[in-house]
Design a protein around this nucleic acid. Structure first.
Length: 660
DNA sequence: GTTGTCACG
DNA sequence: ACGTACGTGACAACT
């Protein structure tokens, strides 16, 4: 038995590492006693630094078990008896606590021990989720942060060692790597290293001590138990989606990467001929475009820091192209050839590095990508997805999404809420004219256009109304609407005055939220916040109080999706689910069942929210995610393209032609 | 680490 | 007093 300590509040607490199989007897006795006492035990894992969901065999090196007074570090890399003892302990202990448990450790331990992911999650409280419910803000937004270090410093011991940074220091000393991303560091430190052992044990000791503190905060903030349970359930569901992930069409992705590389090289060479050596350097681009002896372009746009802005919008103007479609605008301006080449070069380079190559790196040995879903990442509670960032794949083109596929003999399904944020706004703010329109089945963009511009509204006016509807949900003003629509000032002014007249409840709702925030701030430790219907507390920034409406709307829309996912799980649909993208659920189902599964998923996304119907409709594609984007300007499938690009439609061309 | 850019809802 | 577009992830270049 190796023996180490970890200091908390000046006291060295014991950290024990069984070294021989005989040592495991003492560990088992400790576990048995804790199980009998039904004590909640903290569990954490140390791995090799690879992405855990890829399920690399031998990923987990050490599994730590502990409470407020000490820790056991079981080095499962020592072999079968250590793994067996760990599996038995995880199975035997009735109550666990972890930090980032469903999205990380539970997946790793499921893959390592074979224990059911569901069982590992159902008995575990996650301190990361609780910390987010206490305060969802990041440190740079004025929050505490949700890392174990920051939380421990705030709630447990301001002098608790920074275990992550401490381990990096070990790596540096051993010259085995410098960053978390560098797997060699985590894999190369000898498991018996005293700092490694001390800090590994420290993580479970701190997690144990953190739990009661967070629970006390949740209680003081009146965060409902039901919300806490729901967030744990949702985190489990999202972890369960991560485990199968999506299949990568590796040959296609490799071809795409090569093609995008050729494109980037070709257009970068054109840019270089005009004097832009680095297409990623805004400074260089601005210099060449505005050079009085060269292109001599006039660019009035400035960045926040006063630099000349050379973003996509500016480049499209200079190239005389429509930024939405990429088509020529024919405004009479001479298209700038450098701007046109930059647009092509930058897009190809970004799509290659950011999507195609990223997929190839992220995929595991079975060509699966496992997007990591964080269920409470945004300060409104919205989810984020990384590795790959599956929420931000290009939506205007099928090419990138074509890389990702449903299972063999499956079809991909997408179920989208219909303009959920606007409907949520109508529900929360009880907007009479919006509710009437929704009840009549009208499009809210048409309704706004009619109420603002009159019955005979024109197409450009509808465009302003639509952009304005979104803008109002965000709390935007006239300048932003002008930036977006380019509409004349007079039309914009009409929009703002008439919008408030048509939907007076929207402004009132924002004022109510602000008044409530001030009225309740004493109960919230002096913090201004919006409380949503689910009991979530969303802190407000003092100088951006107007954002309260958006926070309430965005957060409630997120909970519409979350609730729907929970109901889908109860209905047995979880095995089909793959991803959640804000207002959309992606699923994979056998070809024969796909339509039924789509309908079943949609059923759970249709419900009433404070008298407003929230609706969603299913779309069933072919084998690839991209097939859902192989559509014309009316949203109709392009059968020739689908048959050429998608294996399901290639085998079932009649389905493609019937859909069109 | 910061800035600018670009991808999404 | 008044009005303010919201929320993310990722990469290249530069400091």
């Amino acid at each position: 038995m190796l023996s180490f300590t970890f200091p908390v509040a000046g006291e060295p607490l014991p950290v024990l590492m069984p070294q021989h199989s005989e040592d495991l007897e003492a560990f088992r006795r400790w576990v048995a006693a804790k199980a009998r006492a039904r004590e909640r035990i903290a569990v954490d894992t140390e791995g090799k630094g690879l992405r855990v969901a890829n399920g690399e065999p031998g990923y987990v090196r050490v599994v730590q078990f502990g409470n407020a007074n000490g820790a056991w570090n079981v080095p499962i890399e020592y072999g079968a008896p250590f793994l067996a003892a760990t599996r038995w302990a995880l199975d035997t202990l009735p109550l666990l606590v972890g930090h980032n448990w469903p999205s990380f450790d539970a997946i790793a331990l499921h893959k390592t021990t074979g224990l059911a992911y569901e069982d590992l999650c159902s008995k575990t409280i996650d301190t990361w989720l609780l910390a987010n419910l206490v305060d969802p803000r990041k440190p740079e937004e004025g929050g505490i942060g949700t890392g174990l270090k920051a939380l421990s410093a705030r709630y447990v011991d301001p002098h608790a060692p920074d275990t992550q940074e401490g381990l990096h220091a070990v790596f540096r000393k051993l010259k085995v790597g410098h960053t978390i991303k560098n797997q060699t560091g985590w894999a190369a430190v000898p498991v018996e290293h005293p700092t490694y052992q001390s800090y590994a044990g420290g993580d479970v000791i701190l997690t144990s001590r953190l739990l009661p503190k967070l629970m006390a905060r949740l209680s003081a903030l009146n965060i409902p138990q039901m919300l806490q349970d729901y967030e744990h359930e949702l985190a489990y569901i999202c972890g369960a989606m991560t485990i199968p992930g999506l299949l990568l069409d590796r040959p296609y992705t490799e071809r795409l990467s090569a093609h995008l590389g050729d494109e980037a090289a070709k257009w970068s060479a054109v840019c270089a001929r005009y004097g832009v050596e680095k297409i990623g350097s805004p400074k260089q681009i601005a210099e060449v475009l505005t050079d009085p002896t060269g292109f001599n372009e006039h660019i009035p746009e400035r960045t926040n820091n006063g630099a000349i802005q050379v973003n996509k919008k500016v480049l499209h103007r200079l190239a005389d192209l429509n930024p939405d479609t990429g088509e020529p605008r024919n405004s009479g301006r001479t298209p700038n050839p450098l701007a046109a080449a930059l647009i092509k070069a930058k897009r190809a380079a970004k799509w290659k590095a950011g999507y195609a190559d990223h997929f190839l790196e992220d995929a595991d040995a079975s060509d699966r990508v496992h997007p990591n879903i964080r269920t409470l990442e945004a300060r409104t509670g919205r989810m984020s997805v990384t590795n790959p960032a599956a929420q931000t794949l290009p939506a205007g083109d099928w090419m990138i999404r074509r890389c990702l596929m449903a299972e063999e003999e499956h079809r991909i399904i997408s179920v989208d809420f219909d303009s959920v944020e606007l409907n949520v706004l109508a529900a929360l703010a009880d907007v009479r004219n919006m509710k009437g329109a929704i009840a009549r089945g009208e499009s809210l963009h048409d309704t706004t256009a009619r109420l603002v511009f009159g019955d005979g509204f024109t197409k450009p006016q509808r465009k302003v109304a639509k952009a304005g509807n979104f803008l109002k949900v965000y709390g935007g003003g006239i300048d932003k609407l002008e930036e977006q629509t380019g509409a004349p000032r007079e039309i914009l002014e009409t929009f703002f005055s008439q919008f408030n007249r048509a939907y007076p409840e929207v402004k009132r709702y924002g004022e109510t939220l602000i008044n409530e925030a001030y009225a309740l701030k004493a109960d919230r430790g002096g913090n201004l916040a919006v409380r949503t219907a689910t009991g979530r507390v969303l802190p407000l920034d003092r100088d951006r109080m107007y954002a309260g409406t958006n926070y309430a709307v965005q957060s409630t829309a997120r909970d519409c999706l979350g609730r729907a996912l929970v109901n889908m799980r109860e209905a047995g649909l979880l095995p089909y689910l793959r991803l959640a993208v804000h207002d959309e659920v992606i699923a994979s189902a056998p070809e024969r069942e796909a339509k039924d599964v789509g309908r079943e998923i949609a059923k759970h996304m249709n419900f009433d929210l404070f008298g407003v119907p929230i609706t969603a409709s299913p779309e069933v594609g072919g084998r690839t995610w991209g097939s859902l984007y192989m559509t014309d300007s009316h949203g109709r499938l392009i059968p020739e393209l689908a048959v050429e690009q998608d294996s399901f439609y290639a085998s079932n061309p009649q389905v493609a032609y019937a859909a069109a």
